[in-house]
Nucleic acid binder design. Structure first.
Length: 261
DNA sequence: ATGGCCCACATCGTGGGA
């Protein structure tokens, strides 16, 4: 069973690519970020026509997240409970799997803009709220996957030019600590469960021929709870959609699980 | 050479992304 995450940077623009990609990859669950569209404009029928269901939390112009899945989700939760926030960055749903339900969260973590921006303390407080909520979610749902755009490159090996980026947003120590606190709850970065080639990234700047130079960062992650860790058999970044005309600046990340049954 | 691109918006300039 395949679970994926993809920041599409406007679902309206990227919908044909997303549909083609679902057909080609046969992913079972796709977490989307940066829909950039209001709830009433979510293209549900296009997914239904391909045999998928969907739950979404949309927002005009900015943010917006969804979970597209072959089977419908239950206990759908939008936003972090108790964290007052007009920005739509979280949706959670419980999905059936061969050996029992899996709780899936699609997360679009704040960017932070820069260390001296007021968006930076918002990012850190958002991560603190996420951590506290995930602690509860893990207790209620030990079989948990948190997929999304974390806007944090966890280590220098996840950055094309660590010296140039040192101390900046996406790599700063407080952000990396916030990311590590999530791992401390009993979650693992699925990508690092496996041997990987160096210089593998999930986002490349549109400017400066970022993709062609592989000047990127690994900021999109699949976090897997201890209970699901042994079922995870691979985690790869699919760069193919990034090569297409009019691409998202992010590539999808796909984690495969062998649930037996 | 300190910015280059892309997306959205009751667009033609600005904010946001990362």
């Amino acid at each position: 069973m395949k679970f994926a995450t993809w920041n599409v940077n406007s679902l309206k623009v990227r919908l044909p690519q997303v549909l083609d990609w679902l057909k080609a990859t046969e992913v079972d669950v796709l977490c989307l970020q940066e829909l950039k569209l209001a709830d009433e404009h979510f293209p549900l029928q296009a997914f239904v026509d391909l045999g998928y269901e969907a739950s979404w939390a949309g927002q005009k112009t900015y943010n917006g997240v969804a979970i597209v899945s072959r089977l419908p989700g239950t206990d759908v939760q939008r936003n972090i409970p108790g964290f007052e926030d007009p920005q739509r960055r979280i949706i959670a749903a419980t999905l059936p799997a061969p050996d029992g339900p899996v709780r899936v969260i699609s997360a679009y973590c704040p960017n932070g803009q820069s260390l001296d921006s007021d968006k930076y303390p918002y990012k850190l407080s958002w991560f603190a709220a996420l951590r506290d909520w995930l602690e509860q979610e893990l207790r209620a749902h030990p079989r948990l996957l948190v997929l999304g755009d974390y806007n944090v490159a966890p280590h220098d090996e996840d950055v094309h030019d660590p010296e140039k980026w040192a101390g900046q947003v996406l790599v700063s120590e407080p952000e990396r600590r916030a990311f590590n606190e999530l791992l401390g709850l009993g979650l693992s970065d699925a990508f690092r469960l496996f041997e990987q080639e160096p210089k593998q990234f999930s986002w490349w700047d549109y400017r400066q021929l970022g993709f062609r130079r592989n000047a990127g960062m690994r900021i999109d992650h699949v976090l897997v709870s201890d209970a699901l860790k042994s079922a995870c058999v691979s985690c790869v970044i699919d760069k193919e959609p990034r090569r297409l005309p009019q691409p998202s600046d992010h590539a999808p990340v796909v984690a495969q699980f062998d649930f037996g049954a």
